[in-house]
């Protein structure tokens, strides 16, 4: 039931943002569609989410998003430098890194963040062992511990507080 209510709220907010008009007919149709969507898709999601436990941890998202935006911008400058440089200074390779995050949401956030920041792209996740396989555009060290420090740590510190 809890997941249905959360889904309803999320889809209703999306509807309101899409339409951005507050007439009665719009809102009635929005409620109808959101109820339909939340009933139809609730089976896809996990039953026990634990989303509402310790809600203040979501305040860390306000720290996480500026950090992410800044890293993303730096990543693009670095990527642009590598593209424009006449010699293409790249040393690509797939390295393995460790992670201590366990929850699905946390792992998804981490993998998506790694894909969008400096020279790294997540290829696969080994959830039981807690490993990520990351394609790195400029491999500084193929060792698992050093690569973990260089790639994952910055974001994992923050994500562990949010999705521990």
């Amino acid at each position: 039931m809890q997941i249905r209510i959360l889904l309803f709220i999320a889809s209703f907010i999306t509807w309101i943002l899409l339409r951005w008009s507050f007439e009665a007919q719009n809102i009635v149709i929005g409620i109808a569609v959101s109820v339909l969507v939340s009933l139809m898709t609730a089976g896809i999601f996990e039953k026990k989410t634990g989303l509402l436990k310790r809600p203040w941890r979501y305040l860390w998202l306000f720290y996480y998003f500026p950090l992410f935006a800044w890293e993303c911008f730096k990543a693009n400058l670095e990527g642009a430098y590598r593209v424009i440089h006449p010699d293409l200074p790249i040393r690509p390779g797939i390295v393995k890194v460790k992670t201590t995050l366990k929850s699905d949401t946390g792992l998804t956030f981490l993998a998506n963040t790694l894909t969008l920041v400096p020279g790294t792209m997540t290829v696969d996740i080994d959830r039981d062992g807690g490993f990520l396989y990351v394609h790195w555009m400029n491999v500084e060290s193929p060792e698992i511990d050093r690569a973990t420090v260089l790639i994952v740590e910055r974001f994992e510190k923050v994500l562990r507080r949010i999705f521990a």
Partner: peptide
């Protein structure tokens, strides 16, 4: 970058990151 990089993984790097931002 999509044209210049040598293999699919590097091309994905450039197309995903630069195009997203």
């Amino acid at each position: 970058g999509l044209i210049r990089f040598p293999d699919i993984y590097n091309r994905l790097h450039s197309s995903i990151k630069c195009v997203t931002l």
